[in-house]
């Protein structure tokens, strides 16, 4: 008893740390550890610094920093800055965006394609997610989901490239149509709006699947059974129960798909052809070569970021769900 009290007293007086029986003890009891980390965690401020310093610095510098720098550059009259000359700020870079249709048309096109792709994806994927979450037998459920996820791992470029296989003039679809005698000469499908939309939907549809699946999966089955017992048909059950209860999934799925879609760079370049220039390609034009056009590019990027996030925000407000599970 006395020895325990003595040990406790020793501990409270900042005596030697208790010994560990594992080989961690060699580190913890070493002089170096005691003087540095050990001393730091002994005080509340030290613990807080150890826990918070790196994350806060990372968040401030690398999550906000790039956006902040981009915003700052977008107001500069000239870039790169010369030493000794003060930076002067202007709105002219933003005015360039509105000056010519080759600048603002791609943004409109990006929005149209992204919104349409999001809507089509929602309509196509919703029944699939519902089927997997509610109708497939529970023991088959994860296999059915896994089967859908296989193409998910193929990556942006490989999926885009595989769409070319399907839609090219000498691709599979034209070959099939010609072989069964529907057409004489190939329909040019690649490098059109059709191939672009097809490729975008092919690229992003699985981002819709997981949020929808997890939302529909949470709907209690007895609600549907009760509604059916009370005489509600399939359509009423869908409209009054499934749709409202999967709202969170719809909101996060649509936001995710829309924001991904509008930022896709390689797919429009490979599938869209010269007539379907999307906004990311317009922006990238300012970042090739010398850096003196960066302010304009940064302004364009900021216009796109703000308009895309505003659109997603308005959508969330309108539908009223919470995008808690954006990933």
């Amino acid at each position: 008893m006395a020895s325990i009290e003595a040990a406790q007293a020793e501990l409270e007086n900042g005596g030697p740390m208790p010994r560990y029986s594992t080989n961690i003890s060699r580190i913890v009891n070493s002089r170096l550890y005691q003087l540095t980390l050990g001393a730091a965690v002994a005080s509340r401020a030290g613990r807080l610094a150890l826990l918070a310093a790196v994350p806060l610095l990372w968040l401030a510098f690398l999550h906000i920093g790039p956006i902040y720098q981009m915003a700052k550059i977008s107001f500069l009259t000239s870039y790169p800055l010369q030493h000794g000359r003060p930076a002067s700020y202007t709105l002219a870079n933003y005015a360039i965006f509105f000056s010519e249709s080759i600048y603002f048309m791609p943004l409109i096109r990006s929005f149209v394609f992204s919104l349409a792709s999001t809507a089509i994806t929602l309509i196509v994927v919703f029944p699939v997610a519902y089927y997997v979450a509610k109708i497939v037998r529970p023991d088959w459920r994860s296999k059915a989901l896994l089967l859908l996820l296989v193409p998910f791992w193929a990556g942006e470029l490989i999926r885009t490239f595989s769409v070319i296989m399907l839609l090219a003039n000498r691709g599979a679809l034209n070959f099939l149509l010609r072989d069964i005698g529907l057409i004489d000469r190939p329909i040019p499908m690649l490098y059109t709006s059709f191939s672009l939309g097809f490729g975008l939907i092919y690229l992003i549809c699985l981002y819709m699947l997981l949020p929808l699946y997890s939302a529909i999966d949470k709907i209690p089955k007895h609600l549907l059974d009760a509604a059916a017992d009370l005489g509600a048909g399939p359509f009423t059950r869908f409209r009054r129960i499934v749709l409202p209860l999967s709202r969170d999934g719809i909101v996060s799925g649509c936001s995710l798909v829309f924001l991904t879609c509008i930022g896709v760079f390689a797919t429009p370049m490979l599938l869209g052809g010269p007539t379907n220039v999307m906004f990311p390609e317009t922006i990238s034009g300012f970042f090739h070569g010398a850096s003196d056009k960066w302010p304009v590019g940064a302004a364009f990027a900021l216009i796109m970021l703000v308009s895309a996030l505003t659109t997603a925000g308005i959508f969330m407000r309108l539908v009223g769900g919470k995008a808690t599970k954006l990933m």
Binding site: I67, T260, G263, A301
Partner: peptide
């Protein structure tokens, strides 16, 4: 949530 293109550009500037 930042679109990929914007993220790339802002990092390039950064």
């Amino acid at each position: 949530v930042v679109p990929g293109m914007i993220s790339a550009i802002s990092l390039r500037v950064f």
